[in-house]
Amino acid sequence: MLQRKDRILIIIIVIIAALSAALTALTRNSAGELLRITIDGELYGEYRLSESRTITIHQELGQNEIVIENNTAYMKEADCPDRYCMDYQPISRGNETIICLPHKLVAEVIGASDGQQPDVIVQ
């Protein structure tokens, strides 16, 4: 069934996956404090995870509603065509992301020191 080159291919893929997973784990800082939202690569806003709130985003591509509560963030509503962004588990740790591809929106958890304006939460 499996031939020798198949096995080599599988081993190479698993090694690359393991290496990139290890790299990800090393750079993932456990304590996330801010939620950074970017749209089309532009900063939309940064919000403290410790403060519960609902962020409603209106933009030309559509609407998203992100909820922050209990130090986690999740996508509550979206009017994008695929709704995959609403399937993500709530995020709370550094570098975890929720992505809404049709709306070019990325919500990522970052450490307080990674914020653009550590003292001012822009909106």
């Binding site: 893929i13 698993v14 990800t24 591809l101 070019k104």
Partner: peptide, 23 residues
């Protein structure tokens, strides 16, 4: 394509999961 669309290189965090899923 997703990285180009949202202009965020951090999407590489999905690489391990996507590799295994593809496998």
């Amino acid at each position: 394509v997703a990285m180009l669309v949202v202009k965020n290189l951090k999407l590489t965090y999905y690489l391990p999961a996507l590799l295994i899923a593809g496998l």
